[in-house]
């Protein structure tokens, strides 16, 4: 069996040139793209996620690892059958109406993507209607709502209420996050989960599907 550990290690070491070189050399030796993806890259990113959660890695390092992962996936893409690329799950993510903060939300989006989710990042100041439209269009299984301001937190509840009203609540799991958000608040507004940081968000998303 092919040794994928060096690929995972290079990813954990945020060494993009090394990751690309190892992926290419695996391909040259006839290893299937699907195996490189699952046993090398995604396995590596799972460890990155764990390290992030344990605060063993700085977030900028995590992001560099995610970038290396993205570049490697681009090499593999043409070689992967549509079925191999099956996403772990489909996610719609955005910052709620009235709130223009997006850094934390983008971090979660990147981490979800690296973990194999198909992520539709809508941006900031997103209305409930827009979220609902995107859930339907993309057949999303997870909805992630972000807010930084205590004043826009109520929009999270309003968005969830709208999802309920439109009859989509059974279709999606809803995760909420942002500096002022708490587990208590998430429970109160009827979300399925809350994560205090991007690493836990990924873990939670995996657990919910």
């Amino acid at each position: 069996m092919y040794d994928f550990k060096p690929i995972a290690d290079a990813l954990i070491g945020c060494d993009k040139p090394k990751v690309l070189e190892l992926v290419q050399s695996a391909l040259d030796r006839g290893v299937a793209a699907k195996e490189i993806l699952n046993d090398g890259l995604i396995a590596g990113m799972d460890i990155v996620g764990e390290k992030m959660e344990n605060e063993d890695m700085f977030i900028p390092e995590v992001l560099m690892a995610a970038k290396a992962m993205g570049a490697a996936v681009n090499i593999l893409k043409p070689l992967l059958a549509a079925t191999d690329m099956k996403a772990r799950g489909k996610v719609v993510i955005g910052t709620v109406r009235g709130d223009l903060h997006d850094i934390g939300k983008n971090l979660v989006a990147m981490m979800l993507e690296s973990a194999g989710f198909e992520v539709h990042n809508l941006g900031v100041d997103i209305s409930a209607d827009k979220f609902i439209e995107e859930i339907s269009v993309n057949n999303a299984e997870i909805l992630c709502l972000s807010a930084l301001l205590t004043t826009t937190m109520p929009m999270m509840k309003e968005t969830i209420d709208q999802v309920v009203e439109k009859g989509l609540r059974d279709k999606v799991k809803i995760l909420v996050g942002g500096a002022p958000v708490t587990q208590n608040f998430a429970d109160k507004i009827g979300a399925d989960g809350y994560a205090p940081d991007a690493g836990s968000a990924v873990k939670l998303a995996k657990a919910l599907l």
């Binding site: 992030m52 605060e55 890695m57 977030i59 900028p60 850094i103 971090l107 940081d197």
Partner: peptide, 9 residues
């Protein structure tokens, strides 16, 4: 300053 392990404040 950002807490580089969590991106919190």
């Amino acid at each position: 300053m950002a807490n580089l392990t969590t991106m919190g404040y």
